[in-house]
Design a protein around this nucleic acid. Structure first.
Lengths: 358, 358
DNA sequence: CTGTTAGCGCTTTCAA
DNA sequence: TTGAAAGCGCTAACAG
């Protein structure tokens, strides 16, 4: 059916080995005479030869594929990471299998589809793409696992993260500089870095001598709908908030919708700050002030770390040059976030009338 | 290094074949004695055996993987398709490789990474994921290719699409019922179904006896930014438009932003209708009226069509039961879109003052 | 019901 | 500079 290496060999009147050597690329130290080379190349082109990646992988013990497990591909933040990691993979000759799984209630987590020599390594995007119990099982089958935006403390998986503490501080400093004291918090539930962001928020507020009443904090599922509902709850509370700090843009967009639906306006009645800087943040009404995550840097750092480990680790097996476990120990550095001030935040004008809300 | 089938066989004191038969599942007609079965299962569990998918694929000539080529994974419409197709793949025991490629100027299209027996079939999402010239090359290597939201006319790839004509008609009828005559069009450039939508728009307008001046149509790149820029252009034009029909929600969200920035309000000053019903459409300001695409149905129909063809076609090779080319001929039926009326459209109140715009 | 034999397409010794 | 032989891990035939 398909054209194999043997067909090319016959067409070029050489042995399969020669064909393999010519097409494998330059990493072979063995020289090939130019005429032979040309003959093989032309035969391959004439026949439309495509190497069988399964056979190659079986032989070399490398699939050339990376498994990418993503918490939620419909989340614009995670979606934005994909083209960037893919770029690194392409540059270095890898493909990737995507696993969108963990969060879908209709299926369980299915990381086992990515095991069994079918991938050379795993990239895990987001905390919920792989929970703590599952981590252990995965690591038993796959040494090379790197995360992005995952809990770092106590995890055996190194994760490339933005500096959350700095991000929250950036947002809070921005709001405080605009004169806000009564600041609400909208966070998404059950995700480690979000709990961290809440902790940091509370401690920074305390440090500044500002009170955070219980009804100024809302935790909610991570969707625009969640942000909408959370904002409504906060606005109906007794705390007369003048600003809202949201742990993601999706939540912030939902919150803006709640404001607008309630007849309020940002930033006149309430300032709103998000986190991530997803593409749509700039086109919200009003355009959203947010803490930008360096998406390309996160993706490139993590992908490079992973591929280096795979290639280093693999060659390490062969010649004993590199240490056995390059990944599990040192956590990569935190990347710096950046405040992007847009129109959803502004100077405090006065206490918001929470009673306006229907 | 990794646990192989042979290890399990030794542990269970049986031959590799027996292990293979036990673990391959139920499709084998050959019976296995229960004690042996249990012994094998326990040995496999004890050793943490994961079958080597590369070896299995090489032997069976089936990788169990589908290549999914997507035009732009950061486009919420395409992103929403992924979990749905993945669900079907999981149900039927397939994995998938994602190719996000075609549109990124930093790389070329790289569908060849998905060829060479590494995938059993290809699912192509969006027109620009694979252009006409490339189609031919891909089809030469892969018989099983199905599209979603792709040009159908003159293509050898069957595509599962929404009924665009009906969708545009839905949007237009909605606007006309609200009293609008002067309706602008915002479309994205260089995508077949969008051109189709423009054609349909123009012919329906003509049919209704309504004029569409040249400056009431704007074609633009498919981003919120594109929609923003297009809306500004339309609003600065001489046609006093009272409504805007956008070919996607992303464009419509950009258009809403342009309105709000220009001091206008939807629907008071201008009604806006989108297409797709992405998750954020409901949380726009104001919530966006749009033509919903049945995402789950599109995904499920296409994925099922593809897998049926692969399995039918493959078994067809073995026993000659099914025809050789089940895919290339008949186009699947068009799926029905649905109008979702929200707050961005309303009755015409009067001519818009285009001069308000800055 | 279970085992033996062979081979998928490729690359890596080793020899010429 | 090229080729012959061997085998990656698995499963489809065919015996027993």
């Amino acid at each position: 059916m398909a054209v194999t290496l043997k067909d090319v060999a016959r067409e070029a009147s050489v042995s399969n080995v020669t064909v393999s050597r010519v097409l494998a690329g330059k990493q072979s130290a063995i020289a090939i005479s130019e005429p032979t080379r040309q003959r093989v190349l032309q035969a391959a082109a004439r026949l439309g030869y495509q190497p069988n990646l399964l056979a190659r992988g079986l032989r070399t013990q490398r699939s050339g594929a990376i498994g990418v497990m993503v918490e939620d591909i419909t989340d614009p933040f995670f979606a934005a990471l994909i083209p960037e990691v893919d770029l690194v993979f392409k540059e270095r000759g890898y493909r990737f299998l995507l696993s969108h799984a963990a969060l879908d209630p209709r299926t369980g987590p299915t990381y086992d589809r990515l095991l069994g020599a079918s991938v050379d390594g795993l990239l895990v995007l987001g905390d919920r793409a792989l929970n703590r119990e599952a981590e252990e099982g995965v690591l038993a089958h796959q040494r090379f696992v790197v995360g992005i935006a995952r809990a770092r403390h106590g995890s055996a998986i190194p994760s490339v993260n933005v500096d959350d503490d700095a991000g929250v501080r950036l947002a809070l400093d921005h709001l405080r500089a605009l004169g806000h004291h009564r600041i609400g918090f909208v966070g998404n539930r059950a995700v480690w870095d979000m709990e961290r962001r809440l902790d940091v928020f509370l401690s920074l507020m305390a440090q500044a001598g500002l009170d955070v009443p219980a009804d100024a904090v809302a935790l909610t599922p991570h969707t625009a709908e969640g942000g909408y509902a959370a904002a409504r709850r906060l606005l109906e509370g007794q705390s007369a908030l003048t600003a809202l700090l949201c742990t993601t843009d999706l939540l912030a967009l939902g919150a803006l919708c709640a404001l607008n639906q309630g007849g309020l306006q940002a930033p006149r009645d309430l300032s709103v700050v998000g986190f991530d800087d997803i593409p749509l943040a700039a086109y919200a009404t009003p355009p959203l002030t947010t803490v930008r995550q360096p998406v390309a840097a996160l993706a490139r750092t993590a992908a490079t770390l992973l591929l280096d480990a795979i290639e280093g680790g693999a060659s390490g097996h062969a010649n004993g040059a590199t240490p056995a476990e390059p990944l599990s120990q040192n956590m990569p550095p935190l990347l710096a976030p950046e405040l992007v001030a847009r129109a959803s935040s502004g100077p405090r004008r006065g206490e918001m009338a929470s009673r306006v809300m229907g």
